[in-house]
Each structure stands twice: as C-alpha cells, then as structure tokens.
Design a protein around this nucleic acid. Structure first.
Lengths: 223, 223
DNA sequence: CGCCCGGTTGACTACAATCAACCCATGTGG
DNA sequence: CCACATGGGTTGATTGTAGTCAACCGGGCG
C-alpha cells in the first residue's frame, strides 16, 4: 500500500544492472561515495547505524519497490550541502534479495529530465518520511509494550498482507532487529511478545508475525 | 544551517498573505482540509500529536525559512493516496511568529511550473526527513542523559548560532517541550540539565541554551 | 560434531516515571 | 493594588519497568 507504483522509476531501474545478494550482505554504506542507487525487486533490506557506544540502531526497513539511499543520492556535492546525519548508515539485506543498481549521475539526469519522475521521487521520499514519523511516534511511548504494539501497527501498514481476517507482516524480522529498531533490549521484546501472544493479540511462527485484529491492537495503546 | 536558501519558494510565499500570530496559537492541524501552506518568516513553530493515552508527542521544531505542512500538502486527493500518519498533527507557535500563507492549489501549480522549484522543495523535504532521522537516533538511546545530549546536538545543528567559542540554540524550548519531544518526564529533563550544567557541558538562562563545546558534548555519547 | 544465531527464562538492579511539594515570575480579574 | 491562577522550573521520596547478566534450548550449517 504505502509503496507507490513508481512506473517511470521502475522502468529506469530495470535498465540497470541486476544484483542477487544473500542475507546479511551489506549493499551500501554512507561512507562510500554515493555513486549508486538501488531499487529492490525482491527481498528485504534494513538500514542501521552503530553509535559511539557500539549500539546498533535500526532506522528503517525496505521491501520490494523501495529505492535507496535517497538522501545521500539527492544531496550531491554540486549543491554544496552534505548529508546531515552523524555516523555511517549501513544498508544490509535481511533476506536473499534481487536489486537493480543505477549510477547516481544517470539517476539525477533522469529525474531532471521529466517532472513526472520528480513527482514519483517526491512520493518515495514522503513515504520514507512518513515511515520515520510513524516509528518516531512509537519511540516516544513510555512503556516497551506500547512501543512494540505501535511499531507492529506501523509494520502492518507498510508490509501487511491480508490473510483470513487478519494481517500477516511479510517482513521477516528478528527480535534483535525489532529491539535495535526500538532502542530496547532483545529480551524485552521476547517477553512482550510472549505476553501479547498469550493475550491473543499476535501469533508468531519462526520469523512471521500475524495480527488477527488490528483494531484490538490499536485499543491497547489507549491505556 | 540546514535551512536552505529557498530563493524561488520564498519569493512565491512573500506574494501571499502575511499573518502575525502569538505564542501558543495553533496555525494548522491535519484534521483541516490541507488547503494552506505556510512559510515561517520569523519565530518558531512546533508540531505535535496527542496519542490515545493523552500524551503529547512533539515531533519537530521549525524556524525561520521552514515550510509546513509538507506531507499533507503534497499528498493531494488527486493521486488517491492519503496521509499515512495516525492521529492529528498540530502546528503551534512557540513564540510570536510572522508567517506567509498560500493556497495549497496555487502552491502545487507553482511547484509544477518549474523544475527548479521542485528541486528546492525536495531539499525542504529532505531537510525535514534528516531532522526526524536525527531525532529518531536520539530516541533510541537507552539513558535519558544520552537522549538529551544527542538531541541538544541535533538542535545545535539546526538552530545553532555561533557565539564566542560556543553555540547558542536560538530555539526557545521549555523542559516540557523537550521532554515531550524525547518521550520522557519533564522532571527527568530538569534533573539531567542540572547535571549537565554542573559538569559544565551546558549553560542556561531563561529558555536559552548555550553549548560551550560541542566536541566535549559529543564525547559524552561514547559511554 | 560443535558453533553460532535466535529465542526463552530467571534473578537482580538501576534508572527514570510518578506523585507531591514548593518557588518564582507573569498575567489577570476583582 | 492586591489576590489568585498559571506556567515553568526545582527537589525529594517512592515505585515499577526494563536493562543487564547469566544460563539454557533448538535448529541450521560449516
């Protein structure tokens, strides 16, 4: 749903190089010159930083149709403004993945060639933007439980597939990923998942999360 | 200095209606039809939501040169996609403020008329995006102290004015605002400010924050 | 086989939320 | 002009949540 049908952009990327990557492979990090841009054809990618204290901080998750890294690519040297975020941002495959890769310069030429492309791109950026906004809302909850519940709802919005009266989150996420995403300990995620499972709000099998009733889940946030 | 020189956009807004608002006035909320867009000429604005539990969550701060609300304005009904964020987002003046107001439709016409404008706008969105990214990093720290220190550095990046061997944050922020921004209790902010002041990392007078040494502050995050 | 990763569980502890006062400055209405 | 309310800041005492440390389990894989 939030992943927009980027007809023009997808067409452009499909003329690029196709890459097949395995889980845990790092696609790109922001220390590199930003000379490539990627479209995800298949599979899932996460972005994260490692802070000065050595903590992993998972910033975002990307699925089929997503384009990255937008911010470093669009902030070219030519305009004299550099990427504002401190520290290196890594993009790593969470699963096996198929990506299309294009040269940043070609990418910039392409988006400047056609206002329609600029528009598509704007929606990509906005979509990311809103994903962060929604995560940021989750992070501001006081209890681990609420943080997790809110983030599950956000992930359902973005990666949810309707399955018999419920939503299955198609992103294969580990407790570790989620805890790094929410700034909490891995064990806390396990414990809250245990509670939510016991109370019937979620069902899990290996790394799949099924949410039988989003409305009920939403009501949890009211307390 | 992340606030970009938006020559074309500023020119456009200056042809609009000028508004003078007092502190605490709400400029816009996302329940309204998104029929207006604003440029801040002078003063400061914050955006926040109120969650189901009644907690205030301050999402972002805006200063002179900022344009808002970007996301609702750019997501017009015409493209069939609605604003993804749950709940209402309010934009409220933190100080007396002078704004320019333009009609959303005119705004959309204008940005479509010239690729140069689209580019400026893209930088506005990216700038916001990166601000959120940086805040999100702060929110993922485990301790209140680190969350506060990181956010002070982010605010210094965005609102810092160099003053004799240090940085003064020009945003007049209250403990309440900062605590709502970082998802913590007001008293916790007071206590950590007290500590940081005692240790010489910050100086405060009424609602002004002065950071004598950003590097030293940065080093705090390593523990 | 043994290692590593992901998940689970228990015990203990520290940090921050909460509740409760209180101070001070400002603004406002009688 | 005083009385009072309000908002911002400060401080202390208490409690609960979640972080930490530790151990263990199961499965996949070299």
């Amino acid at each position: 749903m939030p992943v927009w049908d980027n007809v023009l952009l997808e067409q452009f990327f499909r003329e690029g190089v196709q890459l097949s990557l395995t889980a845990d492979e790092i696609v790109y990090d922001s220390d590199d010159e930003p000379d490539s841009v990627f479209l995800i054809q298949d599979g899932y990618v996460k972005s994260y930083t490692i802070d000065n204290g050595g903590e992993f901080k998972v910033l975002n998750f990307y699925g089929p149709g997503s384009i990255f890294p937008l911010s470093p690519a669009l902030r070219t040297k030519s305009d004299g403004r550099s990427f504002m975020v401190r520290g290196t941002i890594y993009f790593e495959c969470m699963t096996g993945a198929v990506l299309y890769k294009r040269n940043t310069d070609e990418f910039l030429d392409y988006i400047n060639s056609d206002p329609g492309v600029y528009k598509e791109l704007m929606y990509c950026v906005l979509s990311n933007y809103e994903m962060h906004l929604s995560s940021a809302e989750a992070l501001r909850f006081r209890t681990a439980r609420n943080r997790i519940v809110h983030q599950l709802l956000t992930l359902a919005d973005r990666f949810g597939a309707p399955v018999k009266e419920g939503i299955r989150i198609s992103l294969p996420i580990t407790h570790q990923d989620l805890s790094d995403n929410l700034g909490m300990a891995r064990e806390t995620v396990t414990r809250e998942f245990e509670n939510l499972r016991y109370e019937g709000y979620i069902e899990t099998s290996n790394q799949c999360i099924f949410l039988p009733d989003l409305d009920e889940l939403n009501k949890l946030l009211e307390t």
